[in-house]
Design a protein around this nucleic acid. Structure first.
Length: 629
RNA sequence: GGCGGUGUAGCUCAGAUGGUUAGAGCAUACGGCUCAUAUCCGUAGUGUCCGGGGUUCAAUUCCCUGCACCGCCA
């Protein structure tokens, strides 16, 4: 028997689930369902990452113990997945007792092998933050939070001898072209490995952090991040003793977003090597969902979150859109109108309408039963295409091109629609002598529908199951890929149900055309005297320069009758040299604020559309320093 | 600042180891059908393939360079 094992990252519990979490987990689910139907013994692991100072901090702020806090947030993730029809086999938590034990035993093993050593580290330490900063993180040499000069402090910690395995890893990646995929990320890792690798700091003294796993060889330290988090992929299958380890570890695939490529592509394989464990089989890396806020509708003045659209338009539509619109590995845009367009054209018009017209005819012309079919040359193209479909979809899955799998399936949906138009069952129905041909045509349409439903099952399980039910198939579990290898698997005589619209068309109002031309996000009314408190003036930009390490922030020297320095977040829309000489609007009596280490004594006014900012300026020569009212 | 990615039809994107007319879906226009969720089927367009330079008989594809956008790292 063939085996399949996929993991998502364990999600860090200091934030609520968002579209990125949902996408990764849905991809893992689609892959797992696909392999189950293809006859693989499958295992799907997800979970939560629960140690570290950020968690301890968040717990403190919430007035909870760390354990109570992580139980609560982890529970939120665990509760979300069934709502997305996620069928994970296990949910791992880094605070699980068995996980803690495995982490300790692996640390001990690597330590005994001599790959963990005690070393000294020197850096900028802020007492207020209780943490080290890199030089580049400091603002004018000071802590960005406390505005104090950090002390140079030495700290001893444990390090993993990662550098020792650099050459091995380069060789391994070169020998196994599919180890990291798509190729772009493999290249990225190789590019990174061209530079010498540093050893990995893997501990924190308990004086600074207690919410972690105590090192087995030093009671005064906890392990920090990597050995704690990555090892979940082993504990989730019962490492070291479980039979599952033998079955699934050799075929393990990790699914991640590109932001955690380095830990998974470099730290993790070298850690495994150090622990004497075989590397995982594949690292599958996907891109980001960019949220196009301008194309998201607004309700009550707040921008709709993608995850909320699942409730608005339905889970299957949501899963379909994520899988169809993203090319695995590349970034994609998420916008409500793109989503609605997919629903209407693919799901409602193509698939939904096909189901509707097919069952309606079958019910009407064939007395609600699957009719008998007789071979006919006209049907060859449809049947031929149907039998090529599964291998094609399997190919797309092999290369993680899920959108291509869907394109192939939709190709077949369109072909079925064309077949209906060509065969004109409604004409055949008018002539009793063509009853046998009519039956065959209807049978073929229904069989095509069955194949479509089975292939779509991993993507849109509810709707696909619904289609099968309407075709009179009761044991949906039995419908696997074997059953669509040859044409004619649909049983004659099955009772058919017409059913309701599978995917009704949806209306979508573009945010620009708010209904009745009314704004819905107007702020609370204020008395005039409140307005008068604001001192707005005409100012002229004297100098402008970019602030180091910031894309957005510009430092402006302005003339408002006196000279002032302000900081403005307009660097993405304006170049400094274009600003000099411009007349702009500035609020003078705003409390000064420090941004990236530069004190700002005022704020300029601009129309902020997120991606495009437009300065409020004057259409004639208003004098510098003039008040605005 | 370093590294990587992207830039192709109105939109979202595919593609060619360099070779005559560069593709798909959506959107648009027109036509056909009526079983169906005003759905389906057919036909029709549109492109300095980001700019500049180079290699070549030939470049959108290869090389160099510039610009824009997006990541990661410092």
């Amino acid at each position: 028997m063939k085996n399949f094992y996929v993991t998502t990252p364990i999600y860090y519990v200091n934030a609520s689930p968002h579209i990125g979490h949902a996408y990764t987990t849905i991809v893992a689910d689609v892959m797992t369902r696909f392999h189950r139907m293809a006859g693989y013994r499958s295992y799907f692991l997800t979970g939560t990452d629960e140690h570290g100072d950020k968690v301890a901090e968040a717990a403190g702020q919430a007035g909870e113990t760390p354990q109570d806090y992580v139980d609560r947030i982890s529970g939120q993730f665990r509760a979300l997945w069934p709502k997305l029809a996620i069928t994970n086999d296990y949910f791992v938590r880094t605070t699980d007792k068995d996980h803690v034990e495995v982490v300790r035993s692996i640390l001990q093993k690597v330590y005994d092998a001599g790959d963990i050593y005690f070393g000294e580290y020197e850096g900028y330490y802020c007492v207020g933050c209780e943490r080290f900063y890199r030089e580049s993180e400091l603002v004018n040499g000071m802590c960005p939070d406390h505005h104090t000069v950090p002390e140079t402090r030495k700290e001893s910690n444990y390090f993993f001898r990662m550098s020792k395995y650099q050459e091995w890893l380069i060789g391994y990646i070169k020998d196994n072209p599919d180890f990291i995929r798509p190729e772009r990320y493999r290249n990225e890792v190789l590019a990174f490995l061209r530079e010498p690798l540093e050893d990995l700091c893997i501990s924190r003294p308990k004086t600074r952090l207690t919410w972690g796993i105590t090192l087995p060889f030093d009671e005064d330290y906890v392990t920090y991040v990597w050995f704690d988090a990555l090892i979940n992929y082993l504990t989730g299958i019962g490492y070291p003793d479980s039979e599952k380890v033998k079955t699934f570890w050799p075929v393990s695939q990790h699914l991640i977003a590109k932001d955690i490529l380095k830990p998974h592509g470099i730290y993790w394989p070298t850690m495994l090597k150090g622990a004497g464990i075989e590397p995982y089989q594949h690292l599958n890396v996907h891109g980001y969902w960019n949220i196009d806020r301008n194309k998201m509708s607004k309700s009550r003045g707040t921008v709709v979150k993608p995850l909320d659209l699942k409730d608005k338009y339905g889970l299957d539509a949501f899963r379909y859109f994520l899988m169809r619109d993203m090319v695995f590995g590349l970034d994609s845009n998420f916008s409500e109108d793109a989503f609605v367009q997919r629903i209407n054209s693919d799901l409602a018009n193509d698939l939904g309408n096909l189901v509707s017209r097919s069952l309606s005819m079958a019910v009407k012309y064939c007395n609600s039963q699957v009719p008998e079919a007789v071979g006919h040359p006209d049907d060859a193209p449809l049947i031929e295409r149907a039998t090529k479909l599964l291998p094609e979809v399997e190919n797309s899955f092999q290369s993680l091109m899920f959108h291509k799998a869907l394109i192939s399936i939709w190709d077949f949906i369109n072909l079925t629609n064309r077949y209906i138009v060509e065969q004109e069952p409604w004409v055949l129905a008018k002539n009793p002598s063509s009853k046998a041909r009519l039956d065959t045509v209807i049978y073929n349409i229904l069989e095509a529908l069955r194949i479509i439903a089975i292939l779509l099952f991993p993507f849109i399980p509810d709707s696909a199951g619904d289609i099968l039910t309407r075709l009179g198939i009761e044991d949906i579990e039995s419908q696997n890929f074997d059953s669509i290898c040859t044409w004619g698997g649909l049983s004659e005589g099955n009772g058919l149900t017409r059913g309701k619209s599978l995917f009704p068309r949806v209306e979508y109002e573009k945010p620009e055309n708010t209904p009745e031309g009314k704004l819905t996000d107007i702020k609370e009314e204020i008395p005039f005297k409140d307005f008068e408190k604001i001192d707005m003036r005409v100012a002229r930009v004297v100098e402008a320069e970019r602030i180091r390490n910031s894309d957005k922030l510009l430092k402006l020297k302005i003339d408002v009758g006196e000279e002032r320095t302000i900081v403005a977040g307009i660097g993405k829309s304006y170049r400094p040299e274009d600003l000099v000489g411009k007349k702009i609007t500035v609020i003078l009596n705003l409390k000064p604020a420090k941004l990236m280490g530069v004190e700002s004594h005022g704020m300029l006014l601009a129309a902020d559309a997120g991606d495009k900012i437009s300065l409020a300026s004057f259409d004639d020569d208003a004098a510098v320093g003039t008040k605005l009212s």
